[in-house]
Design a protein around this nucleic acid. Structure first.
Lengths: 211, 211, 211, 211
DNA sequence: CATGAATGAGCATTCATTCAT
DNA sequence: GATGAATGAATGCTCATTCAT
C-alpha cells in the first residue's frame, strides 16, 4: 500500500552486510536532509521502499541508526590526520594535506559527514562523549601541526594555533553545507583555495616581519 | 503544580512588548540548545516558568516562533555589511570591519544567530525563501568587497572571491558553535585572529607577485 | 488588535437588555452556521467585534448561551399552536394555520429556530429534557388537531395521526434548512404548498370513502 | 489499562477490509450520537475497545472518517432513484417506490444516513461539494418524477414540483430522527403512510378539479 | 526477512473559562 | 463594562517501537 520504491529497493539480493549498509546510507540521507528529529523512520523506509517496521530488523532504534551514521561520518579522520602530522614535509604542505584529507570524504559520504557535524548533539550521552573526545583529538592534531609551523618559523610567531585550527576546520566544515550547490566548487578547487587562504594567512611575512 | 520558575519569571510586570520579547528569547535559547524539532513547546514554557498553553497567547505556532527567532538572528546584518562596503577604507580594513560586524551580534544574541544558522531549513517555505535571499545578498556584499580588493591590487589576482567569501563567512559562523566554550576566545580576539588569517591569505605577496 | 468590527458593533449605546439580546443573536448566527461544537466563543466575539473574554460579561457559559438561543427558538410555538387548536374552524383550516404559525418565526428568528432543531441535543441534561417535554407537547397539539379531523370525518379514518403529525412537522422543519436558499420560496408559498399537500394527503376521498 | 471493550472488540480476526469497515461503523455511531465536533476520536476508540492512536492505522484523520461515513450514507441513493424514475409504472407508484428506496437504508445503516444528513456541512470543502452535487442530482430525479405525474394528469396542474420534492424528502429525512424511537413506526408503515400523504396531497382531485 | 497491526508516550494546538484591573 | 493575560483540560495527530506471524 506504500508508495513507489526507490532505486535502492531492487538491488535487494546482496549480502546482509551490504543490505545493512544500505539501510544506514538511507538514514544518513534522510537525517542530512531533515535533521535527526525532523526525520521519521517512515521517511527512511520510504527511501528504501520497505515498510517502516522492517527497519527494526536492521537497527535497534533510531538513535542507534544515528550512532552508526555518525560512526561512518567520523571514520578515518583521526587516522588520516595523524598520519599526515607524523609524516614528512613542511607545515604548509601538511596543512594542505590535512585540508585535502578533511574534504575528500565529501566525495563519497557527504551525508554521513554532514549528519555528524549537525546532529551529533542528539546522540545518546555515551556516544556523544565518544565523538566529543574524537573531535578534540582531531583538533589537537591540527593545532599541533600549526604549532610545528610556528616553531619552525614557517608561520607567524603570534599565531593563535588553537583558534587558527578551529578556524581552519570551521571553514572546511562550512564547505559541506554548500558543496554540491555552489557551481564549480569541486573538492580540489576548494582544497586549493582554502589552503592558500590558510597557509597564506598564517605565513611569516617577509616584508612585514623582517623589518 | 509545574516545576520551578526560572529567573525570568518574576520580571513579569513589564510592557507587553517586552514580555513578548522574553518569550521568543526563551524560544531562541531552547531551539539553540536542542534544535527546532528536538525542542518542545513545553521546554520553552519551562524556561519561562509558565504553562505551555500560555505560550500561544504570544505566538501563533511553534513555526512562527522560529520565524521570529530567525528574524532577530538576521537583523541588521545586511545593513551593517552594506554600510561597511559603501564606506571608506582599504579592502583589508573593510574585511576586518565585516568580520567585526558579523561576530559582534554574538555578544547579545548568540542564541538567535545560532538558531538562524542551524534551524533555518525548518522554516516554512515562504520565510525560508526570504532568509535565503537575504543570505545570498549578504554573501554578495562580502564577495564584492573582496573583488574590490582584487581590483585595487590589494588582494591576489587569482583569488576566487566567491569561494573566499564563503570561506570567510563559514569560518566566522563556526565560531558561533564554540564561542563561550573556548576559554579566552573573546569576540575581539576572534575578530583579530580571523581577519589576520583572511586578509593575510588573500593579500598580494611581495615575493610572489613581484615576480 | 482584533479584526474589523461588524455592523452590530457600533450600535453599542443601548439598554443593557438590548445589548444582551445582540449577544445571543450573534451566538445564534454562529451556532446555526457552524454547529454548537464547531463554533468557538471567539467566533461569536468576532461577529460582535468585541474580545472573547468580554462575552462572559453577558453569559455564564457557552452552554448557557445555547440554552438562551434555544429558548428563543422555541418561544411561542406551544402557545400559538394551542390557541389555534382551541380556536374555531375546520381541521383543515387549523392545519393551515398551524403550518403558518410554525413557519412564520423563520422570518425574524431563523437562526434561533435552526439552532434549536439541530443543536438541542447538546444542551445540558436539565434543559434538554425541558425542551423535550415542550416538543412532545407541541407534537401532541398537532396530533390532536388531526384526530379531531378524523373524528369529524374531514380526514381519512385510517390516518395515523401520530405519524402524520410528525411527517407534517418534519416537512416544515426541513424548510428551515433551505429557506433563504431556494429561490422564490417565501414563507407564504411554502405554507400554501405544504398545507395543500398535507391537507390533501389526509383528506377523506370522495371516490374511496363513498365506497 | 483502558476501559471495557465493547462487543465489537473480539470479533477481531477478520479480513482487514472488514476491520476497516468496523472502524467507520463505530465512527458513524459516535458521530450520529454526538455530532462530528462533539465526538472525540477517543469516543470512537472506546466503542471499539482499542486505543485512540490505533484508529490512525485505519484512517488518516477524523475528517477523512467523516468522509467515509458520508460516502456510505449516500451510497446507492442516486442509482436506486434513477432506476425507479426510468422504470415503468405510474407517477404515484414511482413516488411510493422512491420513498421505499429512500427509507430502506435506515434498516441497515441508519447511523451513516443520519451523519450524512446532519454533519455533511463539516466535510472538507472538496467532498462537501461532491455530496452537494449528489444531493441536487437526487432531488432533481424526484422532482422530475413529480413533473412527469403533472404532465400525465395524475398530479395537480398547480403543483410546485420543486417544493413538493423537497417537502417529500424533508419529511422522509425527518423520519431518520425518530425512527427507532417512535413505537410501532416500522419502515413499512412509515413508507405507506408517507406515500399516502404525499400522493394524496399531489393528486388531481375529482371533486375540486373537475368542476 | 519482512510486515501488518497495534500501542504508549508525547506533542502542538485549541478553547472555554477565570480574574485582576 | 470590557479586556489582557493566563491556564487546565482536552483533542487530533505523530511516531518510535513491539510483536506475532
Amino acid at each position: 500500500m506504500r508508495a513507489t520504491a526507490s532505486v535502492l529497493t531492487r538491488r535487494s539480493r546482496q549480502s546482509p552486510r551490504r543490505r545493512a549498509a544500505e539501510i544506514i546510507e538511507a538514514a544518513a540521507q534522510v537525517f542530512a536532509e531533515r535533521g535527526f528529529h525532523g526525520a521519521s523512520t517512515q521517511d527512511i523506509a520510504d527511501v528504501l521502499g520497505i515498510r517502516q517496521a522492517s527497519l527494526y530488523y536492521y537497527f535497534a532504534s533510531k538513535e542507534f541508526a544515528l550512532e552508526q551514521v555518525c560512526a561512518r561520518g567520523t571514520e578515518g579522520y583521526v587516522e588520516a590526520a595523524s598520519a599526515i602530522a607524523a609524516g614528512s614535509g613542511t607545515a604548509a604542505e601538511k596543512v594542505l594535506r590535512l585540508l585535502e584529507a578533511h574534504l575528500s570524504p565529501m566525495l563519497d559520504r557527504a551525508a554521513f559527514v554532514m549528519v555528524f557535524q549537525r546532529e551529533r548533539r542528539h546522540l545518546p550521552k555515551e556516544s556523544r562523549r565518544r565523538v566529543g573526545r574524537l573531535s578534540r583529538a582531531y583538533e589537537r592534531i591540527v593545532e599541533d601541526v600549526l604549532k610545528e609551523g610556528v616553531a619552525s618559523g614557517e608561520f607567524r610567531r603570534d599565531l593563535d594555533c588553537r583558534l587558527s585550527a578551529l578556524a581552519m576546520l570551521g571553514m572546511a566544515n562550512a564547505a559541506t553545507a554548500w558543496y554540491g550547490k555552489e557551481p564549480g566548487a569541486t573538492v580540489e578547487r576548494i582544497t586549493a583555495e582554502f589552503s592558500r587562504l590558510i597557509v597564506g594567512g598564517m605565513a611569516q611575512r617577509e616584508g612585514r616581519s623582517r623589518r
